[in-house]
Write a protein that binds this DNA or RNA. Structure first.
Lengths: 145, 145
DNA sequence: TAAATATAGTTTAAGTATATACTATCTATG
DNA sequence: CATAGATAGTATATACTTAAACTATATTTA
């Protein structure tokens, strides 16, 4: 007979379920554009910050550099991004959106953000503010350790 | 020049980073026992609720039933779980922990929960309560849609 | 400057995850 | 009872993800 779960564990489970519920909707929306969530993340990052090197992309998306390689291979294949040699660093590649990638981003990034806003809107404005503030502080407190 | 991100999008990004930071620590702890996070989830679920059928396991862990197949194959290989024919349903398999799996669970489940508690402890008790309450309500509000 | 070290990107192996189609069994309806 | 539809589990194809080893280029330092 296992003991009742602590509040902390239940918080962690709630966090998982909230992420899962929202991710599911976002993934479904992106599927309309033949984009996976991982590919959208790359697209949106390059849309906001053009001309990143692969390692910078990995750092910003919190994934390994090896992950980025396969992701960019598939997105290059799909005509969304290009890799160009870095003018100053012979090891690095500058990654950019193609015109097609840029066009897609201008369409899908705002829709994606609108769906996030819609998901968050199930909370009252006060709760939304509280959650944002708590998560921001939580994130900050977790950083150094 | 992209516009500033909305508060909702920033909340979503904070959620991602908090999950990533905590998941990283949990994954590192589980690696000491040669367990992946996915395998731990199966282990802990069977520890708390012995004798589940594969589909029930998939439902509780919010993953596909196909995912469970490969997970159980590897865990069976590692001597952690067994599959037995269901006594009343010829299609189903009852999944149980082996003695080795049970022993491992009694060790690693409390350590895992302790690390979750430790991560949540970077927040004040009041903030911890607020976060739990907000996420519980958020989760509930997201459910029907 | 030469050698040691670090970094950018790639490759590989293993695991995770989904959707889809398939088999076997169960359940409900005619 | 027969069959039509639902469900449990599996197999396959594709994609995501990491860690580790590797190559090539930069940087540091002796």
């Amino acid at each position: 007979m296992p003991p009742r779960l602590s509040q902390e564990v239940r918080t962690w489970l709630h966090l998982h379920r909230v992420m899962a519920a929202i991710s599911q909707r976002l993934t479904a929306q992106l599927a309309n554009y033949n984009l996976t969530s991982a590919q959208f993340d790359v697209l949106a990052q390059l849309y906001r910050t053009p001309g990143l090197v692969q390692q910078a992309l990995a750092d910003r998306l919190l994934v390994s550099k090896g992950n980025i390689v396969g992701l960019l291979n598939r997105m290059e294949q799909a005509g969304l991004v290009t890799r160009q040699p870095h003018p100053e660093d012979g090891r690095a590649h500058l990654v950019s959106l193609t015109p097609h990638g840029t066009t897609l981003a201008t369409q899908v990034v705002p829709e994606h953000e609108a769906l996030i806003v819609e998901c968050l809107a199930v909370l009252s404005p006060e709760d939304g503010n509280s959650l944002h503030d708590l998560l921001r502080r939580f994130n900050h407190a977790l950083r150094p350790a």
